[in-house]
């Protein structure tokens, strides 16, 4: 999947991955896809919980070795 931006938050503990993602989302436009790289095992569910609160959408989560690739679609 092609992302408009990649946020590398590997080896960061909670809340680091979410904070890194939020910073990029704030600079993004609706419709853009952001890929978050995280090794924090809570990151996929944390991002989903946040996204459902603020109105964005997690499209897909993949795991490659220890790294989660979390794809977020920025909505309006």
């Amino acid at each position: 999947m092609k992302a408009d931006a990649v946020v590398d938050a590997r080896y960061k503990s909670c809340p680091g991955p979410l904070l890194a993602l939020v910073n990029t989302v704030m600079r993004s436009k609706p419709g853009q896809v952001i890929e978050l790289l995280a090794t924090d095992p809570a990151a996929p569910n944390d991002v989903k919980a946040w996204a459902s609160h603020v109105g964005h959408r997690v499209i897909k989560v993949e795991k490659e070795n220890d790294t989660y690739h979390i794809y977020l679609e920025v909505l309006g």
Partner: peptide
């Protein structure tokens, strides 16, 4: 120091930015 955890000031500032 390895930035696995944000430093205190930048953690607070992330919240303030919201």
């Amino acid at each position: 120091s390895s930035e696995a955890l944000p430093n205190w000031h930048s953690l607070i500032m992330e919240g303030k930015k919201s």
